[in-house]
Design a protein around this nucleic acid. Structure first.
Length: 396
DNA sequence: TCTGGGGTCCTAGGACCC
DNA sequence: TCTGGGGTCCTAGGACCC
């Protein structure tokens, strides 16, 4: 691969069945077993990763546990503390960073690396093979690697051979290697969009790229999506690996699906207060301020709404929780809920904030909120810590 | 005992300002 | 009285990804 102009050599490195592989490292007895990562001893929830042996039975991530057990009644389901995943995440990044300073972390189990520099003295394929071998030997994880001139093509390439694959996609390989693939394999085309395309005869990437179909596809999925795919497939997209792209968060959120039904305002507020507390702690720990506060409510029919409100930048629990209370009072009307969530978005790092926000925070708690706190306290004093839920428990 | 949890990005309409 | 764009912020929702 020669490098004229700004042709770059990008690797996309993708850990194979990452969560399951980490679980095997912690418990080697799992190796070779039909198992998955999910909530242990439960039929609720979904699979977050399936071992290759389990995949052979049709089990895959996002599948409900109930469905998985119906396919494999004696499926082994394990869960692991998240810190194990982050530990191995850093372990494989350590190795990758020995080959380039241009490493962009894309998620817990994948990264982009610009190896243009080292490729001037060593063949990219040799570099990729060495990285793959070292991650397997030194960390114990297998990965697939895509080599291409852009991030998008590298991502598509790493997907083509798993596990332990290495796939090269140069611009001139696109017709051979990408065109035969299904439109469902396009990164960025998901389960809502690909059935629409397939229903209208756009089955392969070759179909998609055929100029005769341009009008029809734009009609189906819009101008923006069409151009996005069209140009990315041709290799006309960003080839800049930016180590800082995801280093600052734009939003943080938490949500929880409950075993019981939530159907009173006081319960909603009680749970959301715990979540808000958690979010504000995280906010402060990383020295962020938030501008937009949102709540998420999902009812028993799985209908989900989010409602938000923007205020001046703040990191003050009382101010933030007060907005949560406002949102609940405005939008919750005694429906039966199964999921609650709180999100903080429009985040700004302390040092990026206009000066006036950095002076000091005035202690604040609205009368409305103090009244609610009082009700909750009284309730608990009278009936005990879990009083709010006792009546539901009886019904279970 | 159907359907987790944490993110990013985009769209679209309305308000408001110039 | 009617009629303009452009830009930015806010809110709600949805698609997608891991």
């Amino acid at each position: 691969m020669s490098n004229q102009n700004n042709v770059k050599i990008i690797l996309h490195i993708d850990m194979n069945a990452f969560f399951c592989s980490v679980a095997c490292l912690r418990n080697p007895a799992l190796r070779g077993k039909v198992f998955a990562i999910g909530r242990e001893n439960s039929y609720r929830g979904v699979i977050s990763s399936a071992s290759y042996e389990a995949r052979a039975y049709g089990i895959h991530s996002a599948m409900s546990l109930k469905e998985a057990y119906s396919l494999v009644p004696d499926l082994i389901v394990v869960s692991l503390d998240y810190s194990y995943y982050t530990y191995y995440h850093h372990r494989f990044l350590e190795i990758i960073r020995q080959y380039s300073t241009l490493v962009e972390v894309a998620s817990i189990d994948e990264a982009y690396v610009d190896i243009t520099e080292i490729s001037k003295v060593r063949h990219p394929l040799v570099v990729a093979k060495e990285i793959q071998k070292r991650i397997l030997k030194e960390v114990g994880l297998s990965c697939s690697i895509g080599i291409a001139p852009t991030l998008f093509l590298a991502k598509m390439a790493s997907d083509m051979k798993k596990p332990l694959g290495i796939t090269v996609v140069r611009k001139r390989d696109v017709e051979d290697k990408l065109y035969p693939l299904s439109v469902a394999d396009i990164y960025g085309i998901g389960k809502k969009t690909y059935p629409i395309l397939i229903d209208h005869g756009i089955k392969t990437i070759a179909d998609f790229m055929n100029p005769q179909h341009k009008e029809k596809i734009i009609e189906l999925i819009g101008d923006t999506s069409y151009s996005y795919v069209y140009h990315h497939v041709l290799g006309n997209s960003s080839n800049v690996v930016d180590p800082n792209r995801r280093s600052e968060s734009e939003s943080i959120s938490t949500s929880q699906t409950f075993d019981r039904i939530i159907n009173s305002q006081i319960e909603v507020l009680y749970e959301l207060r715990k979540m808000t507390r958690e979010m504000v702690q995280k906010l402060k720990k990383d020295h962020y301020y938030t501008k937009t506060i949102s709540i998420t409510l999902r009812n028993t029919d799985f209908k989900t709404i989010t409602r938000s409100k923007s205020i001046d930048y703040t990191d003050d629990f009382d101010i933030i929780y007060d907005i949560v209370v406002d949102l609940v009072e405005e939008h919750y009307h005694d429906e039966s809920l199964r999921l609650l969530g709180v999100g903080l978005s429009n985040l700004k790092h302390q040092h990026a904030l206009p000066k006036e926000y950095n002076l000091f925070t005035i202690p604040y708690a609205s009368e409305k909120q103090l009244a609610i706190d009082h009700i909750i306290e009284e309730y608990q004093k009278k009936y005990g810590e879990n009083a709010l839920f006792q009546k539901k428990k009886k019904n279970l």
